[in-house]
Amino acid sequence: MSEKDTISMQLVREALLQTCPQGKADAALLRRAGIDERSFEQADARVGADAYARLWRLLARRCNDEFFAMDPRGLRSGSLSFMCQASMAQPTLGAGLETALGFLSLMLEDLQPGLVRQQSLAEITINEPRDEPRRAFTYFTFWMIVHGVACWLAGRRIPILAIDLRCAEPPFCDDYRVMFSENLQFERPRTRMIIAADCLDLPLRRTPEELQKFLAEAPGNILVKYRDPDSLARRVRRILGKLDPGQWPDAERLARDLCLSLSTLRRRLAEEGQTYQGLKDSVRRQLAIDWLSEGSLAMSDIAERLGFADASSFYRAFRKWFGCNPGGYRAFVLGGSQVQGKNSG
């Protein structure tokens, strides 16, 4: 099994915290899921995504809650199916998301989601009555459901520009960054996911047969299919992320650094649906939104660090990437209060 098809054992332990006494391993439950009990306490152990998906279904049946008893009301068995059926009947992803989030608002007591669209950006926010933030696992489980359903409805991965969370950063975040976005911000005023608004206009054409297949494979298909590419592509992204764009190696030097031939590098990236140029473009976009989120760098400095000739070139590229200007994105991300705009749908 490849690394990209595995999940940190820490997520298994997190899933058991709410449903098992003191989060202790239930040997019989782990065996039914196909998880080696001996590796449960190993800090760096990993488990197959298919085994984690079986554990998810077993826990959901045990407590009749597809949200692992992390909300006073929870999501009774069949909630995901009903939510998908109602959402797929809508004409667009925006309308489908409104339906899904409306259903979750009715079912859950403490997590009240909403979708707000403002020009070229949109955010899914989670409003909470309590002052104390939830565990990161609670938020990310919610995002896995919402983002996974959104991706399935659209028939493609919906890129996430950023995720803000009210909670502190947990000691394990690598899996979350693979599943969602490299741009995770913790201890923020509110919890939200930011996406490009044009995704909301995607048409929905799912069939009942496709729904049955999706539900039969869930959540394993969500865990693997709709997350960011891993393995070699992610190794390359990490290498690029540690260097200024002006220091990025050419393909031949990168291949040597990875102890690969140039043809092998290209072939293995192609097998993952990637190219080196595409990865460089992706990292450059990620750096742009990371540096804009910091709020301290001037636009001209960001443009120079990204390798653009001037700020205007950066502005044009950013608009092409995300459909908005960088100043607008910075104001959106750093804004202290929820953006004003009409709900999508």
Rank of each mutant, 00 (worst) to 15 (best):
I195A: 02
R205F: 05
K242W: 08
C199F: 13
L202F: 03
C173N: 07
C199N: 12
K242Y: 09
Y176F: 13
G241S: 11
N183G: 02
E217H: 14
E209K: 15
Y226K: 06
L243P: 00
V224Y: 05
I194F: 04
N221I: 10
T207Y: 12
V236W: 08
A197I: 02
R238H: 13
E187Y: 04
D175L: 00
P189C: 09
A197Y: 02
G241Y: 09
L200Y: 03
E182G: 08
L200Q: 07
Q185R: 09
D174F: 06
M193A: 10
A197M: 04
A233I: 05
D201T: 10
G220I: 01
S231I: 11
R177F: 11
R177I: 07
L243K: 10
D175G: 14
D244E: 13
G220S: 04
D228F: 10
D228G: 07
C199L: 06
K213Y: 06
L215C: 04
E182N: 15
S181C: 13
D198V: 08
A233P: 00
L200W: 05
R227C: 10
Q212H: 12
R192Y: 01
R188D: 05
I239M: 04
N183T: 08
E182D: 11
R192I: 00
V224N: 04
L240G: 02
C173A: 12
I195F: 05
P208W: 05
R192P: 00
Q185M: 15
F180K: 00
M193T: 01
P189H: 07
D174L: 04
L184K: 03
K213V: 14
E210V: 00
R237S: 12
L215I: 14
P203S: 06
P189G: 01
D201P: 08
C173K: 05
Q212A: 15
K242E: 14
I195T: 06
A197F: 01
E217C: 06
R237Y: 07
L184E: 07
A196P: 02
N183F: 01
K242S: 13
E209D: 14
Y226F: 15
P229M: 14
P219N: 06
R235I: 09
I222N: 04
